[in-house]
Design a binder for these strands. Structure first.
Length: 445
RNA sequence: CACCCCAUGGAGUAGCGGUUAGCUCACCUCCCUUUCACGGAGGUAGCACGGGUUCGAAUCCCGUUGGGGUGACCA
């Protein structure tokens, strides 16, 4: 049984596309499932479009998604593995050798300065682990340019040569390459190599049903990081596009996907990208996450939005995050949900103000301030506060909601948020009293 | 235009000859609840169409339609 070697071979052209992420993920899953090797190869033969800094974009995206590779370039320029170099721009001599050989054997010829490969015009069958046996007629197959006029090799040639040279056993890639595979097989035969197994995975379509392009919203992995998605959630969602655990579960640990993943079970139909589902999954991960797990993300977002500064109180911060994370689905919501914990001059939402800061509401705020002022700081807990509210409501013949709504607006400026009693506990007695007083001062009669 | 692939509710999917066609997201209703979310209980909505094969078809075959991909000196 040969050891599995798969590769992910992106071009550094700028953004990291969600389709690329899925291709990388499936290669990684297969490598991890089989105990094989996951190779990263940079296909930078198109000098006009490729830039060195874009390579960092690829590293960053793969690392963010937790897709570690076993062979290939490492950030900082180091390279791991013996089959390199792993940048195609550094393999010119290798490609030149193959082109020369094809030329001397008469399998390729020069035409208008470029080198063309004589493609077979006979029918061929492409075996595919996902798609089955695909037949191509090829009677009208045009010859294939394998080296440009400027002497540089093109994708089809370098891709095939590298897969052979790097001893890749399984080529897992997007279905947009399915039609090209017959050319690759012909090339492999011409150079006398052993063909890898192929597995073409369905494409990710945008919500309109066409191929997800760079310009579509949500196409770039970087967007998810910026918006505060959790990488585990994005990865989980991507697993579900074309693959299923077949037991009706949606949220599934990556370790379990690794265990269950296999090529024949990958679906054949293209899948549409559904941001609502990703959003939901992210909420599931957010709620399930420990404070420690999401604290770095929350910190970076809140620092970036100047909600907190470097000298924030870690304990207070974590306490606030703990009650807020249960309510939100996306990191991007954090500034709005946590802002009022850290500043006293927040605005009151106008619509809620009109409804809640009525004369009765303000009177209740006054009563609350007096009552809560007598509660010992050590007893300023959710459970005891609940008792205080209920006692006060009963004493004045009101529903507890009549106290809660004005209180919430007074201490947070908004009508929705975490459980009020917990909110008050986290804020602490001092802040609560100050805020109730401020509301009274501004809106009381 | 040629070749290739695909087709289960709005979206992702389970199903692989016999099911009241299951699940998740979204949407609607109700319950829970101080709000929102979570959770719970329901609801709307699907096998693209037409022929076969078969006692029996979402499942197999053919065709049509629809969608996608490839056909670059891009990858």
């Amino acid at each position: 049984m040969e050891s599995v070697r798969v590769r992910f071979a992106p071009s550094p052209t700028g953004m990291f596309h969600i389709g690329s992420a899925r291709t990388a993920l499936f290669n990684w899953l297969y490598a991890r499932h089989t105990g094989g090797t996951f190779i990263l190869r940079i296909e930078d033969t198109d000098a006009a479009r490729n830039k060195p800094e874009y390579v960092e974009v690829i590293f960053h995206a793969l690392r963010w998604l937790g897709l570690d590779w076993d062979e290939g370039p490492q950030p900082g320029g180091a390279v791991k593995g013996a089959k390199g170099p792993y940048f195609q721009s550094q393999r010119a001599a290798i490609y030149k050798g193959y082109v020369d050989r094809l030329l001397s054997e008469g399998k390729a010829y020069e035409s208008d300065g470029a080198v063309k490969f004589r493609t077979p015009k006979t029918p061929v069958t492409v075996p595919d682990l996902i798609c089955g046996n695909i037949q191509f007629d090829r009677t009208n197959e045009p010859d294939l340019v394998i080296q440009r006029k400027d002497g540089t090799p093109v994708f089809h040639l370098v891709n095939v040569v590298d897969d052979i040279e790097m001893e890749v056993t399984h080529v897992i890639r997007g279905e947009d390459h399915l039609s090209n595979t017959q050319k690759h097989l012909a090339l492999i035969e011409a150079i006398g190599g052993k063909a890898p197994h192929y597995a073409h995975i369905p494409l990710i379509l945008n919500p309109n049903g066409s191929k997800m392009s760079k310009r579509d919203a949500g196409a770039s992995i970087a967007e998810y990081e910026e918006q505060g998605y959790l990488p585990e959630a994005v990865r989980n969602y991507l697993c579900l596009l074309g693959w299923s655990p077949k037991d009706n579960r949606e949220v599934i640990a990556i370790e379990e996907v690794v265990e269950k993943f296999d090529l024949p079970q990958v679906g054949r139909a293209n899948a549409r990208f559904d941001i609502d589902k990703l959003f939901w999954i992210n909420g599931e991960y957010m709620r399930a996450a420990t404070i420690e797990a999401i604290e770095p993300l929350a910190l970076s977002i809140l620092l970036k939005h100047s909600v907190i500064t470097g000298d924030y109180d870690p304990g207070y911060f974590r306490a606030a995050l703990a009650i807020v994370k249960e309510k939100i689905k996306l990191g991007r919501e954090l500034p709005e949900w946590m802002g009022y914990f850290f500043r006293e001059d927040f605005e009151f939402e106008p619509a809620a103000m009109k409804k809640v800061f009525t004369p009765e509401g303000m009177a209740n705020i006054g009563k609350l301030r007096e009552r809560l002022g007598q509660v010992d700081s050590a007893h300023f807990t959710a459970a005891e506060l609940e008792t205080e509210f209920k006692t006060l409501a009963a004493a004045s013949g009101q529903k507890v909601g009549a106290l809660i709504h004005p209180a919430r607006l007074a201490v947070s400026g908004r009508p929705v948020g975490p459980s009020l009693y917990h909110l008050l506990e986290v804020l602490g007695k001092d802040r609560v009293l100050v805020r109730l007083e401020r509301a009274e001062r501004q809106f009381g009669s």
